[in-house]
Nucleic acid binder design. Structure first.
Lengths: 130, 130
DNA sequence: TTCTATGCAAAAAGTTTGCAGTTAA
DNA sequence: TTAACTGCAAACTTTTTGCATAGAA
């Protein structure tokens, strides 16, 4: 857990952020997380949410996603999975893909690049917007 | 070409942006494009580069890419291909994938979502940083 | 002539950072 | 006791926008 890392101490705020991200399937923005925490932490600052999100990304507890140009979203599920973004409402959801799927098999020529990770993202119209 | 669209008139600046994006394999940021155009258009403003990039994205002449959290990059190649981002130097390059590759085949359950597009991105260490 | 394109500058939106006080270990 | 964590506010970066003028059709 967080306490495994030497550099960082425990913080109630950071644990709450992780809990929120672990317990939701949608992929909230920093601001959404901030608003969700305000009840429990009335003095919380948005800057601190960003600071902790960066620490969680750095320690591989969460992933930063990049959808569209507007703002970042965060994901508490670090296992390989894909995302689907609705072109109408902008909602981001998970999409399960087969475990045996390895996109590296489809690379024509890696030209000496060492591939370590991949992300696969889909877009279209979600079930609510059809 | 651009003149096909009804709404927009021809603009030397916009054509230059398109030319730059068509003639490079790296995926420049708005600011990089702006700097590259400064010689030919000394009065050019960065705001106008952004305006034209948005028009080009809207008319499907180029694609907006989203790597990392810092800023957007643009791509003049609208055919299906993948990108590779180096975790060390941050450079973004193209990666060819097989034509018959269709990631939709690997979706477990689309839950009523209508998938229209996908993007596949790889990361790792590039040939120069190994 | 009409309406889009432009440069400029200001504003907006998202994110980071410096500081002084607080808190975990 | 030490160094990380915090709120606050200011700063920073990227992108958008309002306005008056220039330019394409």
């Amino acid at each position: 857990m967080l306490t495994d890392t030497l550099k960082y101490r425990k913080s109630r705020q950071r644990e709450k952020i992780l809990e929120i991200l672990r317990n939701t399937k949608c992929h909230p923005t920093a601001d959404t997380i901030y608003l969700e925490m305000k009840d429990e932490f009335p003095d919380l600052s948005l800057g601190n949410v960003y600071r902790n999100l960066n620490i969680l990304v750095e320690t591989n507890m969460i992933k930063r996603l990049d959808f569209g140009s507007t703002f970042n979203r965060y994901d508490g599920n670090c296992e390989t999975h894909s995302h689907f973004i609705c072109e109408k409402c902008g909602e981001v959801s998970d999409l399960e893909i087969n475990e045996n799927f390895n996109p590296e098999d489809f690379i024509k020529n890696s030209n000496g690049k060492k591939v370590k990770n991949f992300t696969l993202e889909f877009s279209g119209i979600c079930e609510n917007c059809r």
